[in-house]
Every structure is written in structure tokens, then in C-alpha cells.
């Protein structure tokens, strides 16, 4: 591992680490969004709950998710460390007048603040959903899908079924899926206006973080080429708008349709 030590000890190494972790998080955002979009299906949460169950039970995915938590922590703490170290590099006195807008985009100068907003969101988000899903009191639902005509019967079993576990199986000509209903939990949560507002704010923070961060990661990794720059920049801008927008649609949709 000595070869990788530089990722923690030198300025460029630390930056490379930020870029690698950032890109990994970007990848995660894509997957997460694909899952979330299942919420928009009119299937009373069948697909979404299945996805949630898959994500929390598959051993491979589980490992990846721990990697993900580590990545977030690493990215966040290294990022904040850099913010403070970089502030120190200015010295005891800072400028009386500093016109950053003349030479750089505000997002690039506020990655720490945007990141902190994201971090706060992630913590809230995890306790709202991940913690609740794992340990909290949340509704239970049973889906029985007929194998012959594909129709699904949905029953709320929250009150009656305290001792049950998530199950997936086939009973007769029906596929039975008993699960904690994260879908319902989510939909109910998004009926709260203030929560939706917080979500939107967080998505904006991610958008702005990536407005700079996406292409910046490529620059950090040494990819700066006149032929490819327009593509990377274009992709970055598109990504930073579309992905957070995708996330934002869900609470908005739920809230507006309640």
C-alpha cells in the first residue's frame, strides 16, 4: 500500500483522492436515482420496495454500500480538512477586498459549504430512511402477484404482523412478497411541505457541488485535452442539472399529488 500513501500525504495526492471518491459518489448517484425513479411507478410501491429489499440484502451490494459509506466519510472529511488547510494557507490576514467572481465561479469557491450541506442532508436522509428502514417502526405490506394474469393484490399488514420478516416466495399460483413498506414511508414523509423544501435545497446543493465538481475531478486526474474538454464539461453540466432534478421530481411529484 506504500505506493498509495501519496494519496494521504501530498497536496496532489489528497486531491486525487477527492476526485476518485467524488467520481465514485457520482456513480452511486446514478444508481441511486435509477432506484428512486421506481417510486414514480403506479404499482403501490412494489418495484421500489423490491429494489430497497434487494439493496439491503444482497451480500455484494451490502459490501459495496459499506464501501460507499466509507467513501462518503473519506470524501467529506478530507474535503473539510482541505478547506481548513487551504484557508490557513492564506495566512493571518485575509484580503480587505476580494473579487472572486471576476476570476472563478462561486460554486468552485464554496465546495466546502456545499459539501457540508450535502453531508447534513445525507445524515438526515440516512436517519429518515435507512435507519427507519432497518430499525424503525414502519408499515408492512404484502404483495401477492398472480403468475397468470400479473395482477397484484396489496394488503397492509402493519398492525397484524409484528413478528414477520421480509419474505419472498411463491405460494400456489401467486408470488408473495412481504416487506417493510419504504414506499409508503417515503410517500407519507413527502406530504410534509418543509421536508420537501429541505430535500430540494439539498438537491440544489448537490447540483452546485457537481456544477464545478464533475469536470474538476477530470482535471484533477490529469484529463484536460482540447478535444475532450467540451464533452467533459458538457456532460458535467448536464449531469449536475439532470441528476439532482431527477431526485427532486420525486418529492415534488408526491407532494403535488397528495
Amino acid at each position: 500500500m506504500k505506493v498509495l500513501q501519496f494519496l494521504f500525504t501530498s497536496s496532489i495526492g489528497r486531491k486525487v483522492l477527492m476526485a476518485l471518491t467524488g467520481l465514485f459518489l457520482i456513480l452511486f448517484l446514478v444508481i441511486h436515482l435509477m432506484g428512486n425513479l421506481q417510486l414514480l411507478k403506479h404499482d403501490e410501491g412494489y418495484a421500489f420496495n423490491k429494489y430497497a429489499w434487494f439493496m439491503t440484502s444482497n451480500p455484494l451490494i451490502k459490501t459495496v454500500s459499506y464501501l460507499l459509506y466509507a467513501t462518503i466519510l473519506l470524501h467529506a472529511f478530507k474535503g473539510l480538512y482541505l478547506v481548513f488547510a487551504n484557508r490557513k494557507a492564506r495566512g493571518a490576514k485575509s484580503y480587505g477586498s476580494y473579487n472572486g467572481n471576476a476570476n472563478s465561479h462561486w460554486t468552485s469557491r464554496n465546495m466546502g459549504i456545499l459539501g457540508t450541506l450535502i453531508l447534513a442532508f445525507i445524515i438526515g436522509h440516512m436517519s429518515d430512511f435507512w435507519w427507519e428502514y432497518k430499525f424503525g417502526d414502519i408499515p408492512w405490506t404484502k404483495y401477492e402477484t398472480s403468475i397468470t394474469d400479473e395482477s397484484t393484490m396489496v394488503t397492509d399488514i402493519t398492525s397484524e404482523n409484528h413478528g414477520v420478516h421480509i419474505r419472498m416466495g411463491v405460494a400456489g399460483d401467486k408470488e408473495v412478497f412481504i416487506t417493510k413498506d419504504l414506499y409508503k414511508e417515503t410517500v407519507e414523509a413527502f406530504e410534509e411541505g418543509w421536508l420537501v423544501a429541505l430535500y430540494l435545497l439539498a438537491m440544489a446543493a448537490i447540483a452546485f457541488h457537481l456544477w464545478h465538481g464533475f469536470s474538476s475531478a477530470f482535471q484533477t486526474l490529469g484529463m484536460n485535452h482540447p478535444r475532450w474538454n467540451p464533452l467533459i464539461n458538457g456532460l458535467g453540466k448536464a449531469f449536475s442539472i439532470l441528476v439532482p432534478l431527477g431526485f427532486a421530481i420525486i418529492p415534488l411529484y408526491v407532494y403535488l399529488l397528495k
Partner: peptide
């Protein structure tokens, strides 16, 4: 050169482009 740059106490790069 990068080692020396770090030793001198310069900050790291956020690619702001300033």
C-alpha cells in the same frame, strides 16, 4: 517540486481557475 511546494505551505488546488 511538489514536495517543496507543500513544504512551503501553499494550499492545494480546487481547480477554481482563478
Amino acid at each position: 517540486m511538489v514536495d517543496q511546494m507543500d513544504k512551503e505551505g501553499f494550499g492545494s488546488c480546487t481547480n477554481t481557475g482563478a
